[in-house]
Nucleic acid binder design. Structure first.
Length: 511
RNA sequence: GGCCCAUUCGUCUAUCGGUUAGGACGCCAGGUUUUCAUCCUGGAAAGAGGAGUUCGACUCUCCUAUGGGCUGCCA
């Protein structure tokens, strides 16, 4: 067991866009595999044909790739254990269900969904909270345990619909050791006879999962906590198939919770609180409704991944910024927390800010250029972009902040900040702008230091405070009441542009 | 209702029997800054409750409370 090759799988079902909780599950699988030199496999679990959503499968791959988690094998990536999509593996499952029937661990059941629903409703009315198809009730139902062999064969021959259910033993403790949670124990009396094989010829999750994990030689199953209650059932299946020797180890991850209140993070919470719950933007093919994604919101995938990694795991040191390689190096399932973690969007933004600052001016220049081009400002000079980025990066969380807060680098002011205009623009400030226009016009050195010297000399000679001249000057050139150093701004804009803007302001802003 | 899992500052978390219970986000205050942001300094802020075990429990055990998950021919 210990020297077995590590092979983990991420097995989402393509019922919609992968949400961030799913991405985190994938991430922990990926980190674990890479840390141990193992394989990370993508398997598509589409056994429920009624919930298929077009585009979801591609979305899953695109999301994983955006995050830098490229599967070693799996659906869309090839590999020796294919196919990696359960609907394409359909012919393989029946024999395993039959094997269980033959060994007495499963049976045919002819009760229809409608009958079962009715049964549950009746039980509810009678005051029983929950009716289950289990080792007690099955003796009153229509199945191969209650019907004669003849009857069963006849029904099957007549084409009557049936399912195959697992036959759970009575009053048996099923125990297993979860890597994250330790020993977990459940009595079989509390589990129902789950359907393994559906009447539509497809296996349920429970069967397909165990069969595929076995056939694909999966060494560790790392999945969400919502699977913990059915883990004992899975343990039993491995036992009944005689696969206990090669049974994968389980690790059940804590859930991602909504920021306020309690409960699992859902799409609605994102809409309500204003943050994405999906890595990439997604448009529902049914109604055309679209949901925002971290990528489109301007998050760096490294920041997104770093944040997700820390939601439920930490390295035990005080370092918080980790590249994917560093995460791989430090990761261990033993340090994954047991309790659910609430998502904190402020922290996510903080991570993005950290990654933004860590980028070089050249990288920033490139990124800003693309963002600017998308906004209609094309073919900008790289050194100009680099200077803007360098100046704006300390006050930005996203690349687009530079573009929005520093819009004056890309276009002349179209309007002037009303508050500053009202409070700071008067006969005096107008005069100062005129004077500065003359003084700046007289120099050809538009370096930051020279501009500052000229400005300060003007202040000194006229015994003026910065506050008397600065705001009006800023307003004239940028249209704003706040921002970074005016000398740097003017230096970047250049002499001609700066002077023209001052003139425009003087023309447009009478007192 | 039943079963399972969980419980340290508002949030993410460190602590693996002995600590002034540490860090980060956010928040507050002060400083730097012409302004805003950044940055720097400081501050408020936590072991759900109750029993044990122990010389000593946040840490181990049990009970209670609270929260979550599951309870489908969904995954």
């Amino acid at each position: 067991m210990s020297d077995r090759k590590v092979r983990v799988r991420f097995a989402p079902s393509p019922t919609g866009p992968l949400h961030m909780g799913g991405v985190r599950t994938a991430l922990y699988n990926y980190l674990f595999a890479k840390k141990l030199g193992g394989d990370f496999i993508l398997r598509i679990e589409d056994t429920d044909q009624t919930r298929f959503v077009p585009g979801a499968e591609d979305y899953i791959r695109e999301s994983l790739e955006w995050c830098g988690m490229v599967p070693d094998e799996g659906q869309g990536y090839g590999g020796e254990f294919g196919p990696y999509k359960q609907s394409e593996r359909k012919p393989m499952y029946r024999q395993y269900a039959d094997q269980l029937v033959e060994s007495g661990h499963a049976y045919y059941a002819f009760d229809t969904s409608e009958e079962l629903t009715k049964m549950r409703e009746l039980a509810k009315k009678a005051g029983t909270a929950n009716w289950q198809y289990n080792n007690v009730t099955r003796s009153h139902m229509k199945n191969s345990l209650t019907l004669s062999e003849e009857e069963v064969n006849k029904r099957i021959a007549d084409g009557e619909a049936y399912v195959i259910r697992i036959k759970l033993p009575r009053n048996e403790e099923v125990k297993f050791e979860d890597i994250i949670r330790g020993w977990v124990s459940v009595n079989t009396n509390n589990i129902d006879d789950k359907v393994l094989f559906k009447s539509d010829g497809m296996p349920t999750y429970h069967l397909a999962n165990i069969v595929d994990d076995h056939l694909m030689n999966i060494s560790h199953v790392i999945r969400g906590e919502e699977w913990l209650p059915s883990a004992p059932l899975h343990i039993l299946l491995y036992r009944y198939f005689g696969w206990e020797e090669s049974r994968p180890q389980f690790a059940h991850l804590p859930l991602l919770l909504k920021p306020d209140g309690n409960g699992k993070l859902s799409k609605r919470d994102g809409d309500r609180l204003g943050f994405p719950v999906f890595p990439l933007q997604w448009t529902n093919p049914e109604d055309g409704e679209s949901s925002s994604g971290y990528k489109q919101k301007g998050f760096f995938s490294e920041a997104f991944v770093n944040m997700l990694a820390f939601l439920g795991w930490n390295p035990g040191t005080e370092q918080e910024i980790f590249s994917m390689d560093e995460l791989i190096e430090s990761f261990s399932l033993e340090r994954v927390n047991k309790a659910g973690a609430k998502y904190d969007h402020d922290k996510t933004k903080w991570y993005n800010q950290q990654y933004l600052r860590a980028k070089t001016d050249a990288e920033l220049s490139d990124l800003l250029g693309k963002e600017a081009a998308a906004a209609g400002y094309e073919n900008l000079d790289a050194s100009f972009l680099a200077r803007v980025a360098n100046l704006m990066k300390e006050r930005a969380y996203f690349i687009k902040d530079m573009l929005e807060e520093g819009d004056y680098f890309f276009k002349r002011p179209e309007e002037y900040d009303a508050k500053t205009l009202k409070k700071k623009w008067n006969v005096d400030s107008r005069l100062h702008v005129e004077k500065l226009q003359t003084l700046f016009g007289a120099t050809d050195d538009f370096g930051i230091e020279n501009l500052e010297t000229i400005f300060k000399t003007y202040l000194e000679e006229n015994e003026l405070g910065f506050g008397k001249v600065g705001p009006g000057f800023r307003l004239a050139v940028t249209g704003k009441g706040m921002g970074p150093s005016m000398f740097e701004i003017c230096s970047i804009l250049g002499k001609k542009e700066t002077l023209e803007r001052m003139q425009i302001a003087l023309d447009k802003l009478p007192v």
